[in-house]
Amino acid sequence: MFSYILRRLLMLIPVLIGMTLITFSIVHLIPGNPAQVILGETATANAITELEESMGLNEPYFVQYGHYLMDLTQGDLGTSLRSKAEISKEIWPYIAATFELTLFAMIFAVVVGVNAGIISAWKQNSWFDFLAMMVALIGVSMPIFWLALMEQWIFAQELGWLPAYGRQDSRDPIASITHFYVLDSLIHLDFSRALTILKHLILPSIALGTIPMAIIARMTRSSMLEVMKSDYIRTVRAKGSGQFLVIYKHALKNAIIPVLTVIGLQTGVLLGGAILTETIFSWPGIGRYVYEAISYRDYPVIQSGILVIAFIFVLINLAVDILYKKIDPRIKY
């Protein structure tokens, strides 16, 4: 087991080197001089040259790439051209924001998705099954931005129940320690703020969690149906176990494995930053961080941001593979 984890971690190194190469090339293939983009249409030729020099853009690509790799090996993600701050420090609040949102979106997706899938399988071809699968189909096909705007319109503007944007009440900000605001408010034992912060999480979590929820529900249902037909379930039934126990204790254990893969992949995708959700709900997450950097041609941020996202993605997949073994001892590595 540990040798497996170690092997997987070692395999990360070539993957990450590949990532740096790809991000570096993509970024430098975008047409146009970043200095020109930054200064815009009112730039004079002099100003452009000066900015180029100060950004180190007048050096050949391979020299720039070499500098970048050298810095990376020392844990230096570079310095943002836009904010002139160190990326390794600057990136943390964005990662925390994305983690928090992803966590709640996945809780929503898993709790609703798995249960809807189970009940649909249990009561196959019932009205619930049809309804749930219809909702799931709509869920996968619905554009997130539309769902997000509808949520805002109904729950923030018309009903006034939930806030329309942001991570917290901007008039009453929290003194953040970890940048996980829910955690922060609990550390401060400040439950009224915790409630406000949770309220801010509801709409974006639903918007972001809807697609994974729908995928998980469909996956759970089909996987469940298959398991329910197997011999051991018949045996369990023969022993006289109640339907609830049969499903939640015996069937789910086997049915959940393919679902877990989907959950892992979806979590990875969401952690990569959900630009649409983050934009509409003004959620300062990692997706927005990289997106803003792209429009500003902030090379170091684009490179390091994508690298960090890739790193998290690989880690999540590793975690899922380890989880398999926990759930199904028959799986060997």
Partner: peptide
Amino acid sequence: EVIPDNAARLIALKSGEI
């Protein structure tokens, strides 16, 4: 505050958050 989306910003104004 930064609210990138124009429509979302208007909703926040109407709901009194900004």
